[in-house]
């Protein structure tokens, strides 16, 4: 679902409110091959400070899972940019696994990434995704051994999301060497496109990762940080940031 070179941008739905999300998605669509949209959760354990706080802002604004589905639907009326819904498992579980996937598909969601659902626990989920033709994205990490990497590749019908470091999401100054080692291994083992994320915030990061073999690069915290700072008025800043990030795609 991604072609080299792709920019994948992330924001949390409902941050700072759901109508701003629609506006931000419009902007991101101009500059991104794929958009990842996070559903706010009360306990975003895998996220660093920046994205964690965006979850709380969205919840404080009263964002419900149903609102997230609706905003995707509205967005999809105007755009064809693929949407990857990024979520923690409890929100899916609470709605009923099949029900959630079916609802998401009906709204135009193209793929799902459940952060805290490793492949061992994903059988039922994979069946539901196959049934409703929802694409799947799974995480792989620098400490994922090759046999697991292979299984993750098989389970991921959209793309494989390579975590660039040991830690949570969040902008870092420098890329970790772990990222490059992982890309190298994944190029050998995986058959699906590879996107790299966590800690990526600059055009030069994107360039280095694409040159190293990544098909796509995910930028989240660097954009969410702008929403933290400028709230509803972050649109222009996001556009500026996206223009800068895209320079990294010209390899």
């Amino acid at each position: 679902m991604i072609k080299k070179p792709s920019l994948i941008t992330y924001i949390t739905a409902g941050d700072p409110n759901i109508s701003a999300t629609l506006e931000f998605l419009d902007i991101l669509a101009k500059f991104s091959e794929v958009i990842e949209l996070g559903i706010p959760f009360s306990d975003p354990m895998a996220d660093g400070k920046t994205i964690e706080k965006s979850h709380y802002r969205a919840l404080k604004a009263g964002t419900k899972v149903g609102d997230v589905f609706r905003v995707v639907e509205e967005f999809k009326d105007l755009h064809r940019t693929p949407i990857v819904l990024m979520t923690y498992y409890n929100l899916v579980f609470a709605r009923g696994l099949e029900n959630f996937v079916e609802n998401a598909k009906a709204c135009g969601v193209d793929a799902m990434l459940i952060v805290d659902l490793p492949i061992e626990e994903a059988n039922e989920y994979l069946n539901a995704c196959e049934k409703f033709e929802m694409k799947t994205v799974f995480l792989a990490s620098p400490n994922t051994p090759n046999d697991r990497l292979k299984a993750i590749d098989e389970a991921s019908s959209g793309f494989v999301y390579l975590v660039s470091l040991y830690g949570t999401t969040g902008a870092r100054d420098k890329l970790s060497n772990l990222a490059f080692d992982l890309i190298k291994r994944a190029k050998d083992v995986c058959t699906k496109p590879l996107a790299v994320g966590f800690g990526v915030s600059k055009a030069e990061h994107i360039r280095a990762l694409i040159e190293a073999g990544a098909d796509g690069v995910v930028v989240g915290s660097a954009i969410v940080k702008l929403i933290e700072e400028f709230g509803e008025n972050a649109g222009e800043k996001i556009e500026e940031k996206c223009r800068e990030l895209r320079k990294g795609l010209n390899v």
Partner: peptide, 13 residues
Amino acid sequence: GGMFVAETLVTPL
């Protein structure tokens, strides 16, 4: 029960 964690924690667990 189970092991519902992000991928990086699977190997340490």
